[in-house]
């Protein structure tokens, strides 16, 4: 009896395990491959003759004397000045996160505590704005910026990124503050705090988990953004992502693809570290609002 009943169960788990294994392979392999390949020369990275070349670095060894070479990184960071783009990205990301968290916390708190009808409408508008393709907004920004002569500077981009981030931060912090019991700030206010003092001394100390999670996602949005930065920044102010794109435009012909490969790996590294340290917060952020239904 056990035998016949067991068979479908076994089949089911084998199937699901192999599916998971396949997925993990598909998810990880491209990154490993590119990371490994970034230390090779182009004829190894695109090794049509024999894919084993890419593993052992046959051509790399012939050209540079060693199976690993840092020439791609050298070219990207030093020759093409990728460090400047990295610095720009750092500035943009830092200020975007700080500013949007400040507004998001205040706005989210206010919306979570007010039961008025307009709160609903603001949240719905936030949802629609969240769905808006970013480029539609950029097309509205572009001409006025040219007219006012503020196109191409980092502060302008920061403002736009904050604006695009805002619906998301407000939405997320709003649902986070809804989970903070109302009793806490009410009892503080009974004890003689003003609304602001209640926020400052009661809510601020407990809000950090939510703020960190939201901050992570603002960071990712600002860091990963291509649409806004490519349209709004002049060449000398470019952040990393449009910089990689312009590498491609100019370097495909010159055989400098390896610069772009090295740059891509450098860009991915911080994200990797981020996931390593904040996996729990990222998972909880992705599911925020979802699990409540």
């Amino acid at each position: 009896m056990t035998r016949t009943a067991r068979t479908p169960i076994k089949f089911f788990s084998v199937l699901s395990f192999s599916l998971v294994a396949l997925w993990l392979l598909i998810a990880a392999f491209p990154f490993l491959w590119t990371f490994w390949g970034s230390f090779k020369v182009q004829s190894d990275f695109f090794s049509k003759a024999d894919w084993m070349y890419a593993l052992w670095g046959t051509n790399t060894a012939r050209e540079t004397g060693n199976a690993f070479t840092g020439s791609g990184y050298y070219g990207a960071w030093i020759i093409e000045g990728f460090w400047k783009n990295f610095l720009n990205s750092g500035i943009v990301v830092f200020f975007t996160v700080i500013i949007s968290l400040t507004f998001g916390t205040l706005g989210g708190y206010a919306l979570a505590r007010s039961g008025f009808r307009y709160a609903f409408w603001i949240l719905m508008a936030a949802l629609v704005f969240r769905a808006m393709p970013h480029i539609t907004l950029v097309s509205g920004y572009l001409l006025p910026f040219f007219e006012w002569n503020i196109w191409g500077y980092l502060p302008t981009t920061i403002i736009v990124l904050v604006a695009m981030n805002q619906p998301f931060t407000i939405w997320m912090l709003h649902s986070f503050f809804l989970n903070v019991p109302k009793d806490m700030d009410e009892s503080a206010m009974i004890d003689g705090c003003t609304r602001f003092e209640a926020f400052r001394y009661v809510i601020v100390p407990v809000m950090w988990p939510g703020v960190i999670t939201t901050g992570l996602f603002s960071f990712l949005l600002a860091y990963n953004d291509f649409t806004v930065t490519v349209m709004l920044l002049s060449e000398e102010n470019e952040t990393i992502i449009p910089a990689i794109n312009s590498f491609l435009g100019t370097t495909q012909v010159e055989g400098k693809v390896m610069y772009a490969v090295a740059a891509v790996v450098s860009v991915t590294a911080p994200i990797l570290v981020l996931i390593l340290f904040f996996q729990r917060q990222i998972v909880s952020g992705l599911t925020a609002g979802a699990v409540k239904g």
Binding site: N224, T268, I271, I275, I282
Partner: peptide, 17 residues
Amino acid sequence: FVSLLPFLVTPLVGSLI
């Protein structure tokens, strides 16, 4: 951890890879 990678990596970069 591995599964999160393709989602969080920059879309432009992921598709380039």
